[in-house]
Deep mutational scan, measured.
Amino acid sequence: QNEKLANELKSLLDELNVNELATGSLNTYYKRTIKISGQKAMYALKSKDFKKMSEAKYQLQKIYNEIDEA
């Protein structure tokens, strides 16, 4: 289960640069939040902690959705 979550989180991290570029014309909230979420996700992957990875995955998905809707 950890392996599956780690792969999903890696996949979301692969999209980080594209989504970060998409924040160029948006409010600074999005820029700041996506950077923080990305850092948390990288830390969670290194720690291999299921709870941290779950939270990081949720945060990344949430900010990606917010950027898409903005």
Rank of each mutant, 00 (worst) to 15 (best):
Q1W: 10
Q1Y: 10
Q1C: 12
N2I: 15
N2A: 13
N2Q: 13
N2T: 14
E3G: 05
E3C: 11
E3F: 07
E3V: 07
K4I: 11
K4M: 10
A6F: 14
A6M: 12
A6G: 03
A6C: 08
E8Q: 07
E8T: 04
K10E: 06
K10N: 04
K10R: 13
K10T: 05
S11T: 12
S11P: 00
L12G: 00
L12I: 03
L13K: 00
L13V: 04
L13S: 00
D14H: 07
D14V: 06
D14S: 08
D14N: 09
E15M: 15
E15V: 12
E15A: 12
E15R: 14
L16Q: 02
L16T: 02
L16G: 01
N17K: 14
N17T: 13
N17Y: 14
V18Q: 12
V18K: 15
V18E: 10
N19A: 10
N19V: 14
E20I: 15
E20Q: 10
E20N: 08
E20K: 12
L21A: 10
L21T: 06
L21S: 06
A22C: 11
A22W: 08
T23L: 09
T23N: 06
S25N: 12
S25D: 09
S25I: 08
S25W: 08
L26H: 04
N27S: 14
N27G: 13
N27I: 05
T28S: 14
Y29R: 05
Y30Q: 04
K31I: 08
K31M: 07
R32Q: 10
T33P: 01
T33H: 10
T33I: 14
T33E: 11
T33Q: 15
I34A: 02
I34S: 01
K35N: 06
K35E: 08
I36H: 06
I36Q: 08
I36T: 06
S37W: 15
S37D: 03
S37E: 12
G38V: 15
G38A: 14
G38L: 15
G38I: 15
G38M: 15
Q39N: 06
Q39S: 06
Q39P: 01
K40Y: 14
K40C: 11
A41C: 02
A41M: 02
A41S: 02
A41K: 00
M42E: 07
M42G: 04
M42N: 05
M42C: 08
Y43S: 13
Y43G: 07
Y43D: 15
A44R: 00
A44F: 01
L45I: 07
K46P: 01
K46E: 12
S47Q: 06
S47P: 00
K48I: 03
K48Y: 08
D49T: 02
D49C: 05
F50N: 06
F50Y: 11
F50M: 08
K51N: 10
K51M: 10
K51D: 09
K52F: 05
K52H: 05
S54C: 13
E55H: 07
E55Q: 09
E55R: 09
A56D: 00
A56F: 02
A56Q: 02
A56R: 00
K57I: 15
K57Y: 14
K57N: 03
Y58T: 09
Y58A: 13
Y58S: 09
Q59R: 07
Q59D: 07
Q59P: 00
L60I: 03
K62T: 05
Y64W: 06
Y64P: 00
N65L: 11
N65R: 15
N65M: 13
N65V: 06
E66L: 11
E66K: 06
I67L: 05
I67Y: 03
D68R: 15
D68V: 14
E69C: 11
E69M: 13
A70D: 04
A70L: 09
A70N: 05
